[in-house]
Computed example of a mutant assay.
Amino acid sequence: MNPSDQPRAVAALLPAAPLQDHPGGDSRGVLNVVGVHLYLERDGRVLLGLRHPDSAFAARTHHFLAGHCERESAVACLVREAEEEAGLGIDPAYVELVHLVHVVHGPGDRPRMQLVFRARAWTGTPEVREPDRCLSWDWWPADALPDRVVPYTRAAIEGIRAGRLYTELGW
C-alpha cells in the first residue's frame, strides 16, 4: 500500500462518526466535513468527472475533481487531489476561492463545507488516474451541463456564474 493511500484505507474501515462529536454528546459540537473542489474552466467549458457506477457517493453522476482535507490546508489538498485524480499540476499561487457550499444531504447526516477553488492556470491534460472512482474527465459548456450532476456541484457552478460566493443546500 502506498503511504498516501493509508489514511483513505483506514477511513474506509472506520464507522461513520456520530453526529454528536462534542465531549459529553452535546449536539452543538457537530463537526463539519471539509471538502475541496477544483473548478477549471476553459473556453466557457467546465471540467467534470463521471463517477464510477460502483462509487459510494454519486455513482454515474458528474462531479468536480474533489477530495477531503487530510491534516493539510485546503489549497494543499486541492493540489494533491488534482495530481492524484487527474495528473494535473496546480501552482497554489494561481488558486482562488470562488464559491462555498454549506450542505447537509439529509436528516442525521454530517454537515459539509464544500470549498470550490478556481485554478487560473494548470499544467497537464486531465486523465483518469483513479478508474475505480472516475470513468472520464470531460469539458462541459457551463450553460449546458449534463443532466446528472451532483446537486451542490451544479449549485456552485450556477453561483460562480452569477458572481455569488455562498450557497446553502439541505438545511
Results as ranks from 00 to 15, higher is better:
Glu127Phe: 03
Glu84Gly: 03
Leu135Asp: 07
Leu40Asn: 04
His105Arg: 07
Trp137His: 11
Val10Ile: 13
Glu70Ile: 11
Val33Arg: 08
His68Lys: 11
His99Arg: 08
Gly159Lys: 12
Leu19Asn: 06
Ala16Met: 10
Ala142Met: 06
Arg60Asp: 13
Leu97Ile: 00
Ser55Glu: 12
Ala144Gln: 14
Arg8Glu: 13
Tyr166Cys: 04
Ala56Cys: 00
Thr153Met: 00
Leu14Ser: 11
Glu130Arg: 09
Thr153Lys: 04
Gly170Thr: 13
Tyr166Asp: 10
Gly106Met: 02
Ala156Lys: 05
Asp147Pro: 00
Asp26Tyr: 00
Leu97Gln: 11
Arg80Leu: 08
Leu13Phe: 00
Val150Arg: 13
Glu70Gly: 10
Ser4Pro: 01
Thr123Leu: 06
Val46His: 01
Asp147Glu: 09
Val149Asn: 00
Ala11Glu: 09
Arg51Thr: 01
Phe57Cys: 12
Trp122Ile: 01
Gly163Val: 06
Ala74Arg: 01
Leu115Met: 07
Pro107Ser: 14
Pro141Ile: 09
Leu47Glu: 02
Asp138Thr: 15
Ile157Ser: 02
Pro15Phe: 08
Arg112His: 04
Ala59Cys: 08
Ile157Ala: 05
Ala74Asp: 11
Ala93Asp: 07
Val103Tyr: 05
Asp143Tyr: 07
Leu145Ser: 02
Val103Ile: 10
Trp139Thr: 01
Arg120Asp: 13
Pro15Asn: 06
Pro131Ile: 08
